[in-house]
Simulated scan of single mutants.
Amino acid sequence: MASDGVMLLQGEEVNELLMGQEAAILDAVKRAYQIHACHQTDMPPDGFLRFPGKERERIIAKVAYLGGDFDVAGIKWVSSFPGNLELGLERASAALILNSTETGRPMAMMESSIISARRTGAGAALAARHLCPQERVTSLALVGCGLINFETLRFLLSVYPMIETVHLYDLSAERAQQFCRKARQLAPEVHCEVQATFEAALKTSPIVAMATTAVTPHIDSLTGHQDHAVVLHTSLRDFSPQLIRQGDNVVDDIDKVCSNQTSVHLAAEQAGNHDFIRTTIGDILNGDAPELDETKPFVIYSPFGLGILDIAVAHVTYQLAKEQQVGMSFESFLPKSWLER
């Protein structure tokens, strides 16, 4: 009979378990994308909880089943409150529940902002690796100097070990300098340079990672970009619909990214279709994607952020916790049968 025990993992435990596990996380994210492209997943529409008078604040419920050799389900409940930064708090917080697909019962509950950030960074780096030849990349440009781009940097350094320079731009020069100091801890041999404008940062590198808190498009041009630059549009709402349609577009899930007023959604509404999207990252990884459109001046990768990635990385975390006997186990979390109460 299946155990009723539930594992509880706190944030610092999750952090310790995933430290140095970049290869395992990249592999889990890759397999999740591939499984999704083979239609062995289920992800109902995300639930967006919003609040009167607060345009940027939201809490999102991401429910997912990940099949294949994972065969696990769960839900991530993640909040984004950008105003927290002014209070000295993290912008995002999250909790995640993993469920058995044999009994439906919860197996684990864990802090998930770390998982969320690392799966996001890993997904962006994985896409970059398959969209931009390794020999081209000795520098990166990061626009937005928060946790998401820090984790993106972590995984880009893993897939592009020849990186020498990281160029940074943020509306807050203080945050950019703070990011520099943190990046030196991550990779002391990599040189960080803070750029004064977005345009200056754009010119520096073949890979540009966007991770801002923008809620509406504010960029109409990528003038000055390097030839066939790859733009990791993780924040989803930076670019105007016209700019999106100028690029060679790759996404993680066409239906999901064409929703919730993302830049790609606005472009699809403008065009009346989503034919401007060439393919998905899952099809690229499975070898089923059309070739790169060489007529387009740049590639834009717009990942909606799939719940299956959280489930994949949470499953890795759960397995590591069991192996290392980390976390607190509640053997009697569930009640007795109603017949025994």
Rank of each mutant, 00 (worst) to 15 (best):
S80K: 01
S80P: 00
P82G: 02
P82L: 02
P82W: 02
G83S: 07
G83L: 07
G83I: 01
N84G: 07
N84W: 02
L85C: 02
L85P: 01
E86R: 12
E86V: 11
L87S: 09
L87C: 03
G88N: 05
G88I: 07
G88Q: 06
L89N: 11
L89R: 14
E90T: 08
E90H: 11
E90N: 14
R91A: 07
A92G: 08
S93N: 11
S93W: 02
A94Q: 08
A94W: 03
A95S: 14
A95R: 12
A95Q: 13
L96I: 04
L96F: 13
L96D: 07
L96C: 13
L96K: 10
I97H: 11
I97D: 12
L98H: 10
L98V: 04
L98Y: 08
L98T: 04
L98S: 09
N99C: 15
S100F: 11
T101F: 14
T101M: 15
T101N: 15
T101Q: 15
T101D: 14
T101V: 15
E102A: 15
T103C: 15
T103N: 15
G104Q: 14
G104V: 11
R105A: 15
R105M: 15
R105K: 15
M107Y: 04
M107R: 11
A108E: 11
M109S: 08
M109H: 11
M110H: 13
M110N: 12
M110L: 15
M110G: 12
E111P: 03
S112G: 14
S112H: 12
S112K: 04
S112Q: 09
S112Y: 06
S113F: 01
S113P: 03
S113T: 06
I115T: 05
I115S: 08
I115H: 06
S116I: 02
S116C: 09
S116V: 03
S116K: 03
A117C: 05
A117S: 14
R118G: 01
R118K: 12
R118H: 08
R119N: 09
R119T: 09
R119C: 10
T120I: 09
T120L: 08
T120G: 04
T120S: 09
A122P: 10
A122I: 00
G123A: 12
A124K: 04
A125I: 06
A125Y: 09
A125D: 05
A125T: 06
L126C: 05
L126F: 03
L126M: 08
L126Q: 04
L126G: 04
A127M: 01
A127D: 04
A127W: 01
A127F: 02
A128E: 00
A128I: 00
A128R: 00
A128V: 00
